[in-house]
Write a protein that binds this DNA or RNA. Sequence first.
DNA 1: AATGAATGAGTGTTCATTCAT
DNA 2: TATGAATGAACACTCATTCAT
Lengths: 227, 227, 227, 227
Amino acid sequence: MSAAPRTARGEKTRRRLLEAAEHVFAAHGYHEASVSRITERAGVGQGTFYLYFDTKLDVFNELVEDLNHRVRQAMSEGSRGAASRIEAERAGFAAFFRFTAEHPALYRVVREAELVSPDALRLHYSRIVEGYIDGLRDAAEEGEIGDIDPTVAAWALMGVGEMIGMRWVLWGDGDAAPGDPADPTASGTREVPQHVLDEMMRFIAGALGRPALAHDPRPAADDKEEP
Amino acid sequence: MSAAPRTARGEKTRRRLLEAAEHVFAAHGYHEASVSRITERAGVGQGTFYLYFDTKLDVFNELVEDLNHRVRQAMSEGSRGAASRIEAERAGFAAFFRFTAEHPALYRVVREAELVSPDALRLHYSRIVEGYIDGLRDAAEEGEIGDIDPTVAAWALMGVGEMIGMRWVLWGDGDAAPGDPADPTASGTREVPQHVLDEMMRFIAGALGRPALAHDPRPAADDKEEP
Amino acid sequence: MSAAPRTARGEKTRRRLLEAAEHVFAAHGYHEASVSRITERAGVGQGTFYLYFDTKLDVFNELVEDLNHRVRQAMSEGSRGAASRIEAERAGFAAFFRFTAEHPALYRVVREAELVSPDALRLHYSRIVEGYIDGLRDAAEEGEIGDIDPTVAAWALMGVGEMIGMRWVLWGDGDAAPGDPADPTASGTREVPQHVLDEMMRFIAGALGRPALAHDPRPAADDKEEP
Amino acid sequence: MSAAPRTARGEKTRRRLLEAAEHVFAAHGYHEASVSRITERAGVGQGTFYLYFDTKLDVFNELVEDLNHRVRQAMSEGSRGAASRIEAERAGFAAFFRFTAEHPALYRVVREAELVSPDALRLHYSRIVEGYIDGLRDAAEEGEIGDIDPTVAAWALMGVGEMIGMRWVLWGDGDAAPGDPADPTASGTREVPQHVLDEMMRFIAGALGRPALAHDPRPAADDKEEP
DNA sequence: AATGAATGAGTGTTCATTCAT
DNA sequence: TATGAATGAACACTCATTCAT
């Protein structure tokens, strides 16, 4: 029943609704976000919503899709022109954290997607992972990184990014006591502290790198960790 | 208004409610889980629920808490007696995946917690991380792993575990097309494939270990470990 | 989700809802009858409705069923002990008209059923017809009426009753100009004028046979209406 | 606010809307038929509807009116030139059933009219009845039928036609189990079986008088009218 | 301790109608 | 003449919670 807007005015209204939806979903999550809150924030009547979206789930899915495009673009732009895979990784993560800080919706919306629209969630992660996999494979072929399975590595990397992002971007520095209201609409202020980023990159570099050196259970004599 | 059970019969009822809640939350998520579904499954009247819990959120929080205890116990039991930190890590992750497979509630409940009860979520992750941190610090002191910041590493590790768990335990092997119903109540059948576990451990070992050795792609002259 | 009442109190509430529903459906028709109007009239909260009925359609169907039982009972009681089939017919119709006058819901609800719940409608008519058919077959075997096909005759008879009832019971005597509000909740006042009933019975008697006695336009000299 | 079309183009649009409305009302009934569905089917914009009709009820009324003209025309054409009143009756009914089969809208729309626009309904039936009454009166004067009250007889006849039509035209032959989807848009295929029509005519002939001629299975000796 | 009845605010969604273009 | 955008009141239905028994 909904349709694509046919006029410039309609186009604008639709965009307003989408923006309002991002904000409201980010602030309240899917379930607490009511269509009426969205339309109110967009400054349109309730019925107008259904001119452009079939259901509430519809906007949600479109939003996930949209955010997915935007993070991926932010990440690939951030890492474009990096000298090495590791540097690309660092730049990509930095871009991801920046994006997260500016769009906390990413976290909230995506995490809730698991229960609301599982397909959307899988698609979201899978797309990001795919980009990773290609990059890792190339890097492996050029001997830049070890011979780790790129699929497993890609998912692991995403886990690292997500968790670090949650811990330091969303929660802020550890000082904020649990129980802190932490207005979820506030955005753009938190940053991953430099040293966390550094440590994370060392973690990742170690994980991806030249594993013969790192892992060989029977290394040179001075290297006694494993039997 | 709710009170701790004063009789053995009450204790039993309470336990039944908690079990029912775990099942219902796991299957439907917080919002779709209605108190009436919980009481129905527990085989008690609807009013009985409020004899033992103040609100729906209450059970949820208790459930998160409970699951937290149980995973942590499973993990520490799993890794007890491991010969090295890395082996402990592997055993811990294996235990975590096993637990996840048997209690998909963990994932669903915890992920939804972010929006429903943020404090519960923070507490959950923080507790797990704390255990990691101690272990990592010890291992670092004994030279068993590199000198990476244990806090950052711990969060990163948790991210890895969570994502790999989601990808291979919850989703099953990649064959299941998105859109697949994937009955969320089904449990206990999925396992992380051996080779994924292996690769993940190589990833982690590299990340934690001797990073000076592991990272430099073009080792300086004084850096001779490479064959 | 709805359930049968388990206590006397619940039973009473359910009955109140059903009565309110009959009234509201009769007055406004299915679509204009809102659940809230029903609950309001029943003097209960909106949610209470759903304790006893799954959907609005549900009460509607139950109402049709209920009315069906009641008309049929009224009709068979009315015609019990009639001396002949024709007399039984007359008594049955009279009972039907009386019932209709007292329960205008019958008409409105049943007629609307066609679009709202076609099965309910068919069942309603079919049940009444079945009763007719048996009676007609018996009467035919005893030579009381002609050899007309009882099924066709039964449907035709129902049509006659329905239309006469609509014209003279629901609309009142022809004086009421169209456009007259004719409060549909008013009930119990209209009656089919005696002479209309008489004419209708002559119509039916003729239709059913032995018509030589009943209708012959050139009857015996002493025999001016019926024997 | 609406106006009669002033141009040929407007005339055409109006007609298109009316046709669309008939189809949509027939298929869905008044309440489920939305203006947007009508305009969509007519291939015009939603606003265009209000150029030609003031309200949704407006088209509905016009449609009832229109159908009324058409059935009556069909019936009088069908019965034109019939040799006797009874034959005229038969031809008229046959035409009515044919029309109904081809325009199921008649039934649905008219029956729903009772609640939606009672005046329209009364007018519809009254007009048909009027035609009957005149015919019956003439026939009575010429001794062709009995001396039954033509008004009562006319309403009764209409009831017969409507019910038989509903039972055999709309529902099809009795085989179709209730619950059968019975696509309401399907049209033009059902016919009243020959023997039902025959029996119905015997019913009517008996009802209207001279039934001795028409019905008596063992005709008296003096009773020779039958061909 | 246990329960089923009751509630009412809240939700997503529909649709006849208006209006600027 | 024609349109698509916009509206907001209205609806069926859900559910956490309270309470009398």
